[in-house]
Design a protein around this nucleic acid. Structure first.
Lengths: 259, 259
DNA sequence: CGGATCGTTGATCCTGCTCAAAGCCAGTGG
DNA sequence: CCACTGGCTTTGAGCAGGATCAACGATCCG
């Protein structure tokens, strides 16, 4: 769970107790091959999964077999924190690479809501981040051309992987095929290829053998119109921070108290 | 707040107490003219707003002035249930028609989390519905052509308005300009016009003077590839229902108890 | 070595964009 | 009652970004 912990700490530092709790619940690990559904559309959602290594995506299939990838899941991302409230999945989650997921019991989640307010708040924050990512994809699909869309996606993945410690010096492992990129960007594989070439020709990136190297993040971001503030990596508002710090001093996690 | 109550009851029937609570907190009403921001990108989110009449949207502006509407807000929708966790809005919310909103104090929200578990669960459910709507927009923008996108949007709005009691017999008030539709569907106004004509010629709809009449919902849905299950209007899973019913019998709202 | 899978390239086509102008109101003021 | 205005809708002609389809190269792997 180190990725999840690292991700959540972008919102607010967790206490040792909180971290221990997260380590403890993420014990049962499952390995999955590429192109396998973690949960499929129409299924009744079961337990909650945290991605601990690999790459996955939320997607939906059209009647004619075309696929739209709606978002990527990177290590530390939670498959379905919430869905025990729903009777049926409205989309599928599938792996893209060999992947490890860690299952959490629904009861553990509910337990956490009542005994680990800081984790709860951080999980909530991460839901907001996810929503923001979806909104940005809408903007990208609606208003950016092929080049901008691709550049935007690369910037986003770079920052998200960076946020969980999976990015080196402007290098990230990104073993996506051009078809998968196309399914996310709504471009045909051939066209993804052409656009990638354009980015290479401008010497913005290299992408070879599943390794993405970004040469000029400045100019790539400018081309994409990318502004990372929507990822909300800057931490919680000060009142919320203070609230948790005060809680810490009083010793141990406690409840909010309703007014 | 009758729209909100009606919407939430699609998840699970609320107790009288819950309904009273919702009525009580939605007292301070504010009126807004069309084309006015309720909250703007970059602002620090303040209180939570519930739309009680009119039509609004979440949108983002590009550097060159183009606008992408990411989702529409109809009566009963909550502007920002959550955002007190964030330091900065990553998008704007603006009115499209004359609109009434009702402000709720953050403290009231937090209070509700701890004393009205059924409302809390229902609000959570509505967040999930919102996320699903965003995902569907991604699919529509990515994989449907102009006609399908428009048809899909009309179906969605019909069902959402129906769910809050604002739709008559296949008729809804929908005072959107073709430019606004275009900003949501990522089409130019002229093209929206042409597609509308196509739908009219096939006798699927009439849209005149802000009144949308759907003549053949069957065929319109088929054209759009619309399946309303993503709106999750079918109610909560049976365990959750039972949980709340049991709670009801024991008398009065209570906490979940962590395991 | 043979077969898959993925990447690259080329030729051609079509959906939806652009820009511009004209029609159609509803409201306003004279 | 009419002229004027400003927003919205409608129509037209031409254009282009990206799709489609097909074939050819790489590369990996058994």
């Amino acid at each position: 769970m180190k990725h999840l912990i690292r991700k959540l700490s972008h919102f607010a530092p967790l206490s040792h107790e909180d971290e221990a709790k997260l380590q403890e619940i993420g014990s049962s690990i499952e390995e999955l091959p590429p192109d396998k559904d973690v949960v499929a559309e129409g299924e009744r959602p079961r337990s909650v999964f945290v991605l601990t290594s690999g790459l996955a995506c939320r997607y939906k299939l059209m009647e004619d077999g075309r696929r739209q990838i709606m978002s990527f899941l990177v290590p530390g991302d939670i498959c379905d924190l919430h869905v025990f409230l729903l009777t049926e999945m409205d989309h599928s989650i599938g792996t893209l690479t060999p992947t490890r997921v860690s299952a959490i019991e629904t009861a553990e989640i509910i337990n956490m809501f009542f005994h680990h307010p800081r984790i709860t708040a951080a999980l909530w924050w991460s839901m907001l981040q996810e929503e923001a990512i979806l909104r940005e994809r809408i903007v990208a699909l609606g208003r950016r051309n092929a080049e901008g869309r691709l550049a935007y996606l690369l910037c986003e993945l770079l920052w998200r992987l960076e946020a969980v410690g999976e990015a080196g010096d402007d290098v990230v492992e990104l073993p996506l095929t051009q078809e998968e990129l196309g399914d996310a960007l709504s471009l045909t594989p051939s066209y993804v290829n052409r656009v990638l070439q354009k980015l290479r020709r401008k010497d913005f990136i290299t992408l070879r053998g599943g390794l993405l190297r970004i040469h000029d993040l400045e100019r790539l971001s400018a081309l994409a119109g990318f502004d990372r503030s929507y990822l909300h990596l800057g931490g919680a508002p000060s009142e919320i921070r203070k609230h948790f710090e005060a809680m810490e001093k009083k010793g141990g996690p406690q409840h909010y108290r309703g007014s």
